[in-house]
Design a protein around this nucleic acid. Sequence first.
DNA 1: CGATAAATCTGTAACGTTACAGTTCCAAAG
DNA 2: CTTTGGAACTGTAACGTTACAGATTTATCG
Lengths: 351, 351
Amino acid sequence: MVSGSDRVSAGKVHAPQILEGERPTLKTIAYLTGLGVTTVSRALKDAPDIGAETKERVRLVARQLGYQPNRAGVRLRTGKTNVIALVLGMDAEIMSMTGRMVYGISDVLTGTPYHLVVTPHMNSADPMVPVRYIAETGSADGVILSRTEPDDARIRFLAERNIPFVTHGRTEMEFIHPYHDFDNEAFAYQAVERLAARGRKRIAILRPPTQLTYSGHTMTGFHRGLKAFALEEVPLDWISVETPAAGQKDAIESLMRSPDAPDGLICCSGSSAIAAAAGIASAGKRIGREVDMAAKEAAGVLPWFQPEIIAMNEDFTSAGRELARALLARIAGSDPATLQSIDMSTWTDEM
Amino acid sequence: MVSGSDRVSAGKVHAPQILEGERPTLKTIAYLTGLGVTTVSRALKDAPDIGAETKERVRLVARQLGYQPNRAGVRLRTGKTNVIALVLGMDAEIMSMTGRMVYGISDVLTGTPYHLVVTPHMNSADPMVPVRYIAETGSADGVILSRTEPDDARIRFLAERNIPFVTHGRTEMEFIHPYHDFDNEAFAYQAVERLAARGRKRIAILRPPTQLTYSGHTMTGFHRGLKAFALEEVPLDWISVETPAAGQKDAIESLMRSPDAPDGLICCSGSSAIAAAAGIASAGKRIGREVDMAAKEAAGVLPWFQPEIIAMNEDFTSAGRELARALLARIAGSDPATLQSIDMSTWTDEM
DNA sequence: CGATAAATCTGTAACGTTACAGTTCCAAAG
DNA sequence: CTTTGGAACTGTAACGTTACAGATTTATCG
């Protein structure tokens, strides 16, 4: 009943010259279907008070015109930006993972209305700047943060203002928030395990910067491993994976030359592993002979570089996917407690 | 004359409850200054028909409130998005440079109203998709493209629609457009030169994928070098720097084992250099002894990896800066002919 | 038969901004 | 004294969308 197609009522849309060249809007569809703009809007949203046949008709025309909602219009009216902000602290290590992470995030965002805006900030500058900007200008619906600290001012800030976010890395804060993390504790433990299996006794670890949460996790796993396999720690806490490569090499070289040199080394990043390997070589030792090395990396080059290194891969593409998924769910209102995940290690020799 | 401060005329702004909590808008400033919204807008744009004193007053209030124009409002009214789109074809090599390039671009965009939106697209899919999307939805004021081909459909498309863009890499198309490129011809020539200086005679090159413009440049430089130094080419055209690493390694290994093995190898990417080095080692040869290798990389790890490799660094951070600068200038209306630049090589041994 | 409800559809206003076409005031010119 | 003109300011409308409060039509009930 009521075909509706002849219900072209009074002065709906005044200008029929809408049709030329320009991008189609709701108005265009309204004119073409003889419906009101509101009806078209609601039809495309599948609202319950619009007739089934009408919805079908509207959808058809919209598809044919290639209609895409105007982002500025939606944003102005609703405040919804359809933007995800990726906030990056820009150090050497992050540079190598950024591409992969962006890829993973985009992969999930494809087919959603979301765009990815990348907001790096210089390491020296105040890390609150980008986060404050996003909050003040409402320029994103959600934020992805990296380089998480146990008590992280950025996270406190976002949580207070109820701005959806996910962190790459955990915190030790009093509230629950979505995160994705790599199981660095397991990595360090398993690294010790592997060195023990090769008969190594005295282990040093080239650790992440202490202020980051995952540094603590790493050390926990390391110490747990040492205890479990009754190995000894050789201290190496005056450098980190973010010390300039030359510094890392020199430190490892002199460590390897010393009488208390370790016979096993764990490296928490690919570039560190390479610098350390150079240091070991300079000290006249060989990986797989006098020393063994276990390392984690993003690029997958270590095995090519030196197959004796016991290597594992941290998959930043999958991390990006996981982060994006969690953030979208958070924006949609999911319980943060259900949006926490941890990646497990896969060692290259097990693949 | 006319202090203006007591000219609070009739019904300007109806709602004084503007002041609470919410983000300040032109309306807020209008209310606070007793001016009209239009006047405030024009004052902030430094329009010529606004009094000097008024401008000063408006700017003061705006600064104090931390006023930032609403992007959606501006975009809806003017069509200006204040967005730069970075379109990335996602292959392994691009992943390693993305971080650096994003960093360089952001560096230039800081302090401008521009945001950076990253739009990767899967390699297999149609490369026109992202570009068409940007054009159809008007979602960016300008586009940065990588992986340029000599006759590039994306570039033709953008040029036709008059959408500002810059390319990372040149084309061979009939019109002038902004670009930034690395001088791959000089790189290849100088690589040959360096191998010649070490007494190498038979050179192979692990080249970029043939469809990309810079592959041609590279080969031109390579052949020019061979001629200049009277060296011989050993063909290696069944693999490229984008062949999976295992394939590259195997190809290099068997090439090195063959009776016509080259004594010099040029690698056009860091990951290729590492795979090739592994192949050389498997064939029982040593870099710096039986063979020499010259390579270009982004990460700066090659010298650590194996100091015998003659390495140079392609600086993607500076490329990002250059691309952003050129694009902003293009958007502002500069002549494309003035927005073309080429980066020169710096070899690690010269630094 | 009138009243009430349910199902569809609609116009108006508003989000924040700017282009445009005024308006107001005052000084200088005729 | 009127006219002209310029300087400084202003209101209205529009960009595309959606929330809201109706309006219209048809079916159902007493």
